[in-house]
Structures are given as structure tokens and as C-alpha cells.
Design a protein around this nucleic acid. Structure first.
Length: 339
DNA sequence: AAGCGGCACAACCGCTGTGAC
DNA sequence: TGTCACAGCGGTTGTGCCGCT
């Protein structure tokens, strides 16, 4: 037997709220509060609405100090950074934007921000592609073959302001401090206190590059990338699940992975759907592995994220610097990859 | 002026988490 | 420990507006 419905569907009104309904709800809550029971509230005040609907209306619209529209550049940056760091946890993101609701942010992301980033990314693909070819031709004249995907699909997130991919790079987002605080707070979830020995899960600590902070054992972004890809590998070794699924290897890590992967899907591939492991990464993988062979079944899904991450990170480090492959996270990646 | 498509936003739906019993 | 009820969350859908043809 399923759960009883929260309200009598036949006797509740749906659709847009009238000013009268708004006034009733607002007046009552301002006077009496919600009473901790949204289900009973509409009956108390004579509204033919579902309790959930009342709650949503209050939280998203009637509640005091709600801002609508007019997102600033700074807010854009915060949303992008947090989305990349923690995924589509809109309620968490909303806590960092006073006056904004999760619903608002979600809508804003889906309708504008995502497209804004996509537009910018496409422009930059062209420039990056040309530059990449030039550099590679200079390095190894005559033998370099450019896979389209590897060059043209360099992920945009590498350039988002708050998500520094270089450990020493100064984040230039104004609200970095508050994001840091939030993520430290979330660290209780990101930190894997209950991790079982021998588990494949990765100790996923603080997603943003906040390695300069004094009060915690922060991982660098490099480690973050490595950790996420490692986790992917470990997941991949046991199944063919795709991103946006809750892997219970390390619940918090899956949230982060979700952020990366959905963004990678959407920004890098222009594909808001889940990854189709077959073919999508062909070429990227090759350039990262130094291989020209065809993709094997086992390397066609999760493992390929590695390849995706490498080029852009490396490009951010620049030639001649100590590359990310020296990083312990990547050592771990190699280890897991060899399992 | 009408039809159409795209966009933005509000609201709904269904699932999960959590606390009480 | 299992069940139930509710709150909360994120994904999706519905709807009205606006610009273009």
C-alpha cells in the first residue's frame, strides 16, 4: 500500500495563486507562523490548497525580503562556482544568496546562466582550438593530429572565476569567503568520517580551491579533480551507472560528481542528457593516453572523464610547470585505474 | 493582425530525509 | 526495527508574455 496523499486532490485548487489567497496565507503566517504543520494550515485558514503548495508559495514568493530577477554578476559567479562544486543542490546555493530562493536560482540557471556560459564557451572554443593546434604543431611538427573533441570541447569551467584549477591561483570572486565558509560547513558531509577501510571511496573534502586557508586540511583542486575521477573509476569498475545517479560509494562525492558531470555534459558537450558512454569521449581519451587506438568498452565511460580533465588542467598549469600528474591525487587515480 | 516559437517564471510532482511512535 | 507522516528538495511541466515572421 502506498503512502496516503498529503491532501484530497479532488478538493484542492491548482494553478496560479490569486491575490486573495496570497493575502490570506501571508496574513495568517505573519500573525501565527506556520505552526510547524503545512498540511493542516490551508484548512485552518480556509484555503483550498495543498499544504505543500502553501509552503512553496510562502517560501518562494510571499516570505519577506525575497528578491526576484536581476541577478548580479557576482551572484552569477557564486552560482556557477557552487554548482560546479556541489552540483544542483539549489537549497544550499540559495543559502549563499540572501533573498534568493532555490526555485529562483534553479530557474535562473536553467533558463539563462547555463545558456550564457554555453554561448561564451562556443566563442572561446574557436580561439582555443586555433591556439592548441598552433602549440602542438610547434612542439611536434608533422606528426600531431588534432582530434576535434579534444580541442574544441575544452570545458568552460576551467575559467570560471571562483573555481581555481591552480593551487596558487587567487580566486577573484568577491564572495569567496562565504563560499569557503559554506563549504567548510559542508565539510561535515564531504569529509568521509565513516569511510570503511578498503573501500574504494575517496576522501572528498573541500571542493573549491581553498588550499590557502589556515583552518583545515584542504585538498587542492587538483586533488579534487583526481578524487572525482578516481571515484568514477572505482564506480565504473563495478557497474555501468551514469552521472546524475546517486552512487552510494560516498554520498557527498556523488553530489560533487554530479555537479561536474552535468556541467561537463551541458557545457562541454552541449548535451544536457546523461552521458552515453559510447563514443562521446572518443578522441579525448586518445590524446590523454597518447593512444590512437579505438576506445575499449571499459574505457568508454567513466575512465574517460580523466582524459577530459587532463588537457584543460594541464593547459592551466602551463608548459614546464610541475604538472598535475605529480599530484598525489593523480597517483591515486593511476592506482585505482590499474585495479 | 494572426500565428508561431522561444523564454521566463510559477507551480506541481514525486522522491528522499527525518523524526515520532 | 519498522512504519508512518511530514518537510524539504530537485526535476519537470504549465502558462503567460514577448518578439519575430
Amino acid at each position: 500500500m502506498g503512502r496516503a496523499p498529503c491532501c484530497d486532490k479532488a478538493n484542492v485548487k491548482k494553478g496560479p495563486w490569486s491575490p486573495e489567497e496570497d493575502a490570506k496565507l501571508k496574513t495568517y503566517i505573519e500573525k501565527n507562523g506556520t505552526g510547524g504543520n503545512w498540511i493542516a494550515l490551508p484548512q485552518k485558514i480556509g484555503l483550498k490548497r495543498c499544504g505543500k503548495s502553501c509552503r512553496l508559495r510562502w517560501l518562494n514568493y510571499l516570505r519577506p525580503n525575497i528578491k526576484h530577477g536581476g541577478f548580479s554578476e557576482e551572484e552569477d559567479n557564486i552560482i556557477c562556482s557552487l554548482y560546479i562544486s556541489i552540483g544542483s543542490r539549489w537549497s544550499v546555493i540559495a543559502t549563499q544568496l540572501p533573498g534568493r530562493t532555490d526555485n529562483d536560482i534553479k530557474n535562473y540557471w536553467n533558463t539563462r546562466l547555463k545558456k550564457k556560459l554555453l554561448g561564451k564557451q562556443r566563442k572561446e572554443q574557436q580561439a582555443r582550438r586555433a591556439n592548441y593546434v598552433k602549440q602542438e604543431m610547434k612542439r611536434e611538427p608533422g606528426i600531431f593530429v588534432v582530434p576535434d573533441q579534444a580541442v574544441g570541447r575544452n570545458p568552460y569551467w576551467a575559467e570560471l572565476p571562483a573555481v581555481s584549477v591552480h593551487p596558487n591561483q587567487d580566486p577573484d570572486i568577491k564572495d569567496q569567503a562565504s563560499i569557503k565558509k559554506l563549504l567548510i560547513k559542508l565539510g561535515g558531509r564531504f569529509g568521509d568520517d565513516g569511510q570503511q577501510p578498503g573501500s574504494n571511496s575517496i576522501n572528498f573534502q573541500y571542493p573549491l580551491d581553498i588550499s590557502t586557508a589556515q583552518d583545515g586540511p584542504y585538498e587542492t583542486s587538483m586533488n579534487m579533480f583526481a578524487s572525482s575521477t578516481s571515484t568514477m573509476n572505482s564506480i565504473n569498475s563495478t557497474g555501468s551507472q551514469l552521472p546524475n545517479t546517486h552512487y552510494d560509494v560516498n554520498g557527498s562525492a556523488s553530489n560533487v560528481l554530479q555537479g561536474y558531470n552535468s556541467l561537463l555534459n551541458e557545457l562541454v558537450y552541449g548535451n544536457p542528457q546523461q552521458l552515453d558512454g559510447s563514443g562521446s569521449f572518443y578522441g579525448i581519451e586518445d590524446i590523454a593516453n597518447g593512444s590512437t587506438g579505438t576506445s575499449s568498452a571499459e574505457s568508454s565511460s567513466w575512465g574517460d572523464i580523466n582524459s577530459l580533465v587532463y588537457p584543460s588542467i594541464i593547459s592551466n598549469y602551463g608548459v614546464g610547470q610541475q604538472g598535475p600528474l605529480q599530484d598525489s591525487g593523480f597517483e591515486e587515480l593511476r592506482y585505482l585505474g590499474s585495479q
